[in-house]
Write a protein that binds this DNA or RNA. Structure first.
Length: 484
RNA sequence: GGCCUUAUCGUCUAAGGGUUUAGGACGUGACCCUCUCAAGGUCGAAAUACGGGUUCGAAUCCCGUUAAGGCUACCA
């Protein structure tokens, strides 16, 4: 097969939000398709009317778009294989189910939910591997047709072989064998006329020309049902690839109770899409060498199903944080400027001078994990400090300090060149003249300028703040801190 | 319960029978750098679940045990 003809899909149910596990499945599909120049399709599997959530599809689309996982065909991007929403394809499933009935591969079942529950319980007690007793399997087809015509409620079930086994190959798992004797006569069409997942997925994957089914491991044990359906219809079976699951720290399947699972949660917490995508890509896949920082383009370039692992991966936020920091500092300053402006505005800090902002960002960007961190550590670059760190006062502000700071301010006021090097030279010579250690000036000066004891180097800080501000703050501090 | 899958440092993982005193990264400890805090650098602690085979040789292949997860719906 020509690689360019590769077609894969991400087929979520719209249950409210995009799960990070779902994002990874979507990402792997996307990377696989783009790597080979194939097509990535978004299909909405909304066959369960009871789980319908308003606005879920829009939310899903928006979140995928945010993450940069762009599909070639989908509900709002017709590629000729639509509709891409299963609830809009009902007649297609009906026709295919009827075809199966005609071929003798499926049958009408009239069992009531009550009877089904009873049988299921009984079979469970008897420790039988299936829950349905195939009660309607041998009803005469003509008789069944008559009952259907008479309006009796029914479902359509597929006829599983009574014995034998099915072996199939999975790109990630290798060969898997499952015996038919543990498989139920799967419902294909529900009593409300909607298809179940199993029918819909096979029909749509075939009709949409899907060549590779890449999805979560939870589907591995239903593959025989699907392959059987392909065979009933006389269709080619796509290549199967079942991805390992994402896990909680306690190794159970990643769930809401143990942390955030919605992609939007991470987004609102300040995680960059670049970091999330990079992190999630590495949960189950690796490039085969020591590289860890990847852009989407690099992932497309490097990705292969052969390098996807088999075992579940714990979603560990620590590493995600580190990646967020790495990707944050990789961003060019002008992009950071437009990222920080609205965040600062929330704290009523309005930026008029973007060049100034950029120089502050340059000074602080290495110490950010989240964009929001910048707001918290940069306040004194935009307003004079209102208070001074108590512990720092105790440690660095001595009886003679105010006088020193005043002299230092006077000295700086007359400095023609306010560069880092000039500032350092003048502080050092000042300290030498007074026979002081430089730290006796540096620490109180930082406190006076920023109100804090931690921050960037003093000379860089002064150069960015500018002469006027520096001199003013040094003088103000001698009054404010002494008074306190 | 049955069926399927999985099993390397705390976590993500590399090592495709000999290149391995099992490598990297996050986290963690110490140290260096230094005006503080970060960043950066150096060094350290830290793993092949267990038991049998196969083989001259096993983290790697086979079997069993154990553990974990998935499925077992007219949910996906």
């Amino acid at each position: 097969m020509n690689n360019k003809n590769i077609r894969v899909r991400f087929a979520p149910s719209p249950t409210g939000y995009l799960h990070v596990g779902g994002l990874r499945t979507a990402l792997y599909n996307y990377l696989f398709a783009k790597h080979f120049g194939g097509k990535f399709i978004l299909r909405i599997e909304d066959t369960d009317q009871s789980r319908k959530v308003e606005g879920a599809v829009e939310n899903l689309i928006q979140t995928l778009h945010w993450a940069g996982v762009e599909y070639d065909e989908g509900p709002d991007k017709n590629g000729g294989s639509g509709p891409y929403i299963q609830s809009q394809r009902l007649p297609i499933y009906q026709d295919h189910a009827k075809e199966l009935i005609q071929k003798g591969n499926a049958y009408y079942c009239f069992c009531s939910p009550e009877r089904l529950a009873e049988v299921k319980n009984k079979n469970k007690e008897l420790k039988l591997p299936f829950s349905y007793d195939r009660h309607c399997r041998n009803i005469d087809p003509a008789e069944a047709q008559r009952r259907v015509a008479a309006g009796e409620p029914y479902v359509i079930r597929m006829k599983m072989p009574l014995e034998g086994e099915l072996m199939f190959d999975d790109v990630i798992r290798g060969s898997v064998t499952i015996g038919f004797n543990v498989l139920d006569d799967q419902v294909l069409i529900k009593s409300d006329g909607f298809p179940t997942y199993h029918l819909a997925v096979v029909v749509d994957d075939h009709l949409m020309g899907i060549t590779h089914v890449i999805r979560g491991e939870e589907w591995l044990s239903s593959v025989p049902k699907h392959i059987l359906l392909y065979q009933f219809f006389g269709w080619d079976v796509p290549v199967m690839a079942h991805l390992p699951l994402l896990l909680n720290p306690d190794k159970s399947k990643l769930s809401k109770r143990q942390g955030d699972v919605a992609v939007e949660d991470y987004r609102t917490k300040g995680y960059l899409k670049e970091a999330l995508v990079n992190f999630i890509a590495l949960l189950g896949w690796n490039p085969g060498d020591d590289r860890e920082i990847f852009s989407m383009e690099q992932l497309v370039q490097e990705f292969s199903l052969e390098r996807v692992g088999k075992s579940g991966a714990v979603f560990n936020v620590e590493k995600l944080n580190w990646l967020n920091q790495q990707h944050l500092r990789l961003k060019p300053n002008d992009e950071l400027v437009s990222m920080m402006k609205p965040l600062l505005a929330e704290k009523s800090i309005i930026i008029h001078d973007e060049t100034y902002l950029a120089s502050v960002i340059e000074l602080l960007k290495d110490r950010l994990t989240f964009p929001q961190d910048f707001v918290n550590i940069s306040d004194y670059f935009f307003t004079d400090p209102k208070e001074y760190d108590e512990a720092a006062i105790k440690k660095h502000w001595h009886a003679e300090t105010p006088s020193l700071m005043r002299q230092f301010a006077d000295l700086l006021e007359g400095l023609p060149n306010f560069s880092h090097d000039a500032l350092e030279a003048s502080l050092r010579s000042f300290a030498e003249k007074l026979q002081l250690k430089t730290s006796a000036l540096i620490h109180p000066a930082r406190l006076a300028l920023s109100g804090k004891s931690a921050g960037p180097g003093l000379f860089e800080m002064m150069a960015v703040l500018g002469k006027e501000t520096v001199v003013r703050r040094l003088r103000t501090a001698t009054e404010k801190i002494s008074a306190a």
